[in-house]
Design a protein around this nucleic acid. Structure first.
Lengths: 236, 236
DNA sequence: CGATATTTTGAACTCGATCAATTGTGGTGG
DNA sequence: CCACCACAATTGATCGAGTTCAAAATATCG
């Protein structure tokens, strides 16, 4: 158990407006209604790495949008081992389950500094009554989560260690379309691909030796996406 | 590639009414509106084992409810190997993605004889306009699928072969709360837990030797759920 | 700069994969 | 009804990728 850096909470409309622009799918309705008609506060949460946004089984009736940063959703097994079930990034939604009155299903933990938008479930309900078409957007979010979950399963539970790590690197690289790549701790990476930290370490070391990864900074790398993709698909 | 037994299609209101009772969450709205106000037909589909309900990438704008039987959702990897991503049973929904205008994301294949309810996406849209609270039910379905996907990941991609098979058997046993258990083909079971057919076969053989499974019929078994659960959790 | 945590590397071992051969099970037509 | 065939399940023997346990090297932070 690590100590938890307490989250910074504040209300900040201007940021949420900005959020609304980038994330027009979910907040198109919000813009039209205008924030003044909403009587519950939409808050901003700032998290440091390793901080929890929420924990499994908790009930807080709040829906979140990740404005910037990266988070992991973790599930635990009876034997205590953990498995990372999903990786969330810019403009992904967290805690959708609260909209169907379920407690949170995972621990949500920050991997980097995170800037998060916290929306009370009641606000969404309210909004849904006046603007039913936001349900279309919400369903799209759910489907996105489901696609992610399925992709996660097929990509990170099949094939050799080499393949899985290559796939993970590609996924981590993809947001920055230039070949930069931010790595996470080995333990996290291991929990994502279902391997041990040692195996992940060895595999990455080998990729480096082959010149497919080149250090740029402490946790920043340049990568050869072409050949990584070939490795991911089992050729070579 | 196997030959496909062509699905039997028919329109049958009485069965759908029956369906509405059992599956009140999704069709509560339908009951109120009455079927006569729906201008698109709700059809019944009968599938034999190994038959496809739909294929990945296909677009048919139809949502399905599994009235009885068992189906698998399959995803394929670039190297051609397949992985079963979810198992669907009585009153589960299939093809939700069609409601957000996405093509189907998996191959949906019958494992047993199946009785299926096919609802055009337009009907849901129509319904949503007059009866917005059905969205609550739809979101619940989505969340259910997501919970299933996450559970699938943590249960069937971690632990020893023994544990995984035990967990699978428990899941297959759970609908019939008495200790009966219907097994599927080894190949399917292997694709569910991410092992080879040989390993699954060996593991089941061993469980039988230990008296935790006892044959009753060709594919029917009696099982000792208590000790299976202990194995699943890694004790012993 | 020392102390703790994380990563890397090494060596032995193990579980499940793989390859191959045998047995069992429907299903079909004679 | 049985003989036959194609296919699924079982069993055996071997092999190897990844785990495990342990130690060294490196990074992180007060």
């Amino acid at each position: 158990m690590k100590s938890i850096s307490s989250p910074t909470i504040g209300s900040d409309e201007s940021k949420c407006l900005h959020c609304a622009i980038r994330d027009s799918a979910l907040f198109a309705g919000l813009e039209e209604l205008g924030f003044r008609h909403i009587h519950q506060p939409i808050e901003t949460v700032i998290l440091a790495p390793r901080a929890f946004l929420y924990r499994a089984q908790e009930r807080r009736d709040t829906l979140f949008t990740l404005r910037s940063g990266a988070m992991k959703l973790v599930q635990y097994l009876p034997d205590g081992s953990q498995r990372i079930v999903r990786l969330l990034r810019d403009s992904d939604a967290l805690g959708l389950e609260t909209l169907v009155r379920q407690p949170y299903q995972h621990d949500a933990i920050a991997l980097t500094d995170c800037d998060i938008c916290a929306i009370p479930a009641d606000v969404i309900d309210e909004l849904g009554r006046e603007q039913p078409r936001i349900y279309q957007a919400l369903m799209a979010r759910w489907q996105q989560a489901l696609n992610e979950a399925d992709a996660w399963l097929t990509q990170f539970t099949t094939g050799t260690a080499r393949q899985r790590v290559a796939r993970l690197l590609l996924r981590l690289a993809c947001p920055a379309s230039d070949h930069r790549l931010r790595l996470f701790g080995r333990e996290d990476m291991a929990a994502m691909v279902g391997l041990t930290t040692e195996t992940v370490s060895r595999t990455i070391a080998e990729l480096r030796r082959q010149g497919l990864l080149r250090d740029q900074d402490a946790h920043l790398q340049n990568c050869d996406q072409e050949t990584l993709r070939r490795i991911a698909d089992g050729e070579e």
